[in-house]
């Protein structure tokens, strides 16, 4: 096992108003590991991703990514809450794909793919365009490069969003229920694409999903969350087939029944 995991949560607390979303959460994900988070809604899965993306701030505890503090920074030898610039700097290594794609409607597909690489990574337009073309080819949408996002199907939009996240060459990829907004017949294509990305890159992937089948053959490890804590942690074959915790059993039964 490597000395420093890619993602570390230590004693993280997060509350929204009166409701506690994460309580004293510890979590570690190794480089290149594929981890799936499952659990009932409100169990804090999405909050974990949003904290990593700095879309929310921790109330207590710390988060480290690639050995650097994300939630905090060092200033005059003390650990203080991170400012915008520091967060942005650490976050640069993290990509995220959203449930609702969040493509920018005011830009073409190409525009979506080269915006951040040119502005944040400082690539030239030519370099960024070349990379965008490669990625679109990989996600099977090379011919849609000049199309408007609004003219694409949901599945196509989501594949563009995946390409957009990969264009930043992230070390960590966060996937937030990325198939939930898709029509059932489009889900398989997106999942196939993710498997290929998982097999061909060494990106660390943290994934929130209700696709139990996908979680089983995609992840190295599955975490079951409930009430803001990890209540079960194990390899997918064990956790999804023979869960130890009664809550996990109930949850899996409910998910399978709902299909």
């Amino acid at each position: 096992m490597p000395a420093e995991p890619m993602i570390v949560f230590e004693g993280v607390h997060k509350r929204f108003g009166d409701s506690v979303v994460l309580s004293d959460l510890d979590l570690a994900v190794d480089p290149g590991e594929h981890v799936t988070l499952i659990g009932p809604s409100g169990s804090g899965k999405t909050t974990i991703l949003r904290l990593l993306m700095c879309l929310e701030r921790v109330d207590a505890g710390t988060i480290r990514v690639g050995g650097r503090y994300l939630s905090h920074m060092h200033r005059r030898g003390e650990l203080v809450p991170a400012d915008e610039k520091h967060s942005r700097d650490v976050r640069r290594r993290i990509g995220m794909v959203f449930q609702q794609f969040n493509l920018f409607p005011n830009m073409s597909v190409l525009g979506n793919l080269i915006e951040a690489p040119t502005r944040v990574l400082g690539l030239s337009r030519a370099e960024a365009t070349e990379r965008a073309a490669e990625l679109l080819d990989m996600v099977g949408l090379a011919e849609k490069i000049d199309e408007h996002p609004a003219r694409l199907s949901g599945g196509q939009q989501q594949r563009v969003a995946i390409a957009r996240a990969l264009a930043m060459r992230p070390d960590v990829l966060l996937l937030d229920e990325i198939t939930s907004a898709l029509d059932p017949e489009l889900v398989a294509g997106v999942l196939r694409l993710l498997r290929r990305i998982g097999d061909t890159t060494d990106i660390t992937i943290l994934c929130v999903t209700h696709e139990i089948g996908f979680a089983r053959d995609f992840s190295d490890r599955v975490l079951m969350l409930d009430g803001g804590r990890v209540i079960e942690d194990g390899p997918p074959d064990q956790l999804l087939r023979e869960p130890r915790q009664p809550r996990t059993k109930e949850f899996l039964a409910a998910v399978l029944e709902g299909r």
């Binding site: 993306m53 915008e84 976050r91 990509g95 609702q100 969040n102 951040a116 502005r119 930043m168």
Partner: peptide, 25 residues
């Protein structure tokens, strides 16, 4: 909000988020 978040997730600076993503919409 999702558009802001999409821009945050790509590490765009606050000024770029406003100028390139939010204002045109």
């Amino acid at each position: 909000r999702a558009q802001h978040e999409g821009a945050v997730a790509l590490s765009l600076s606050p000024w770029d988020r406003m100028r390139r993503v939010v204002l045109p919409q």
